[in-house]
Amino acid sequence: MVKAEGVHKSFGHVEVLKGIDLEVAPREVMCIVGPSGSGKSTFLRCINHLERINAGRLWVNGHLVGYREKGGRLHELRDAEVAAQRRDIGMVFQRFNLFPHMTALENVVEAPVQVKGVGRAEARERGVALLERVGLADRVHNYPNQLSGGQQQRVAIARALAMEPQLMLFDEPTSALDPELVGEVLDVMRGLAADGMTMVVVTHEMGFAREVGDTLVFMDDGVIVESGDPRSVLTDPQHERTRAFLSKVL
């Protein structure tokens, strides 16, 4: 589903990603952990081309992200083509980024109607069903500022799901939440994983990674230090850096 080969990314002179190689299989849940500044969010943003990579190759569903290879050269994709690639990739942000001028339902309906051309009535029906699925049937007509952080994040998940993505990216989805609200968001994500959604989750929730994740990737300083089965990585880390990090967060 996702394949990265030697992905490099620099902001000016600062090299944030120093060669990332990994592969995410369909229906796999991959959790990426690591200290802040390790490049895990940047890598996630590269997957749907919110950031442009400087070297290496990145494929989603067999398609090169952001480029077309023709005659041995890479050609940048036009905006419309990039937008088309993003349709199949849902993204959930740390700070929700809900559209504040729209109700929960309007947030969910917006992209299917505007991007996919789904009829308004049909989109609303599906939107209500999605909001029910994330447990917000009674908050359909609320604006984001009338919702708690956990509710907002669940609307954001419903909004991403409305595009029927094949892959979901989560960028620290619970980091901006009050502790007692983390659980409700993780529950929704757990449900998604159980339904077979392919997910890449940047997170600090080690419990979630252990319980739901198929793979755990530990990143530090722009490289993957260690990866493997979450239970074995968390209980028996092979590298000193992993051990040092885990001793601080567990």
């Binding site: 349709r87 990739i89 942000f93």
Partner: peptide
């Protein structure tokens, strides 16, 4: 307008023009 708004719209596959008209300008 918070740049995260345009990012969220683009992550949903909205074009630049639609992002401007539907998301950024109304805010």
């Amino acid at each position: 307008v918070d740049p995260g708004q345009a990012e969220a719209a683009q992550a949903l596959g909205m074009s630049r023009g639609k992002t401007m008209r539907r998301i950024v300008l109304p805010q």
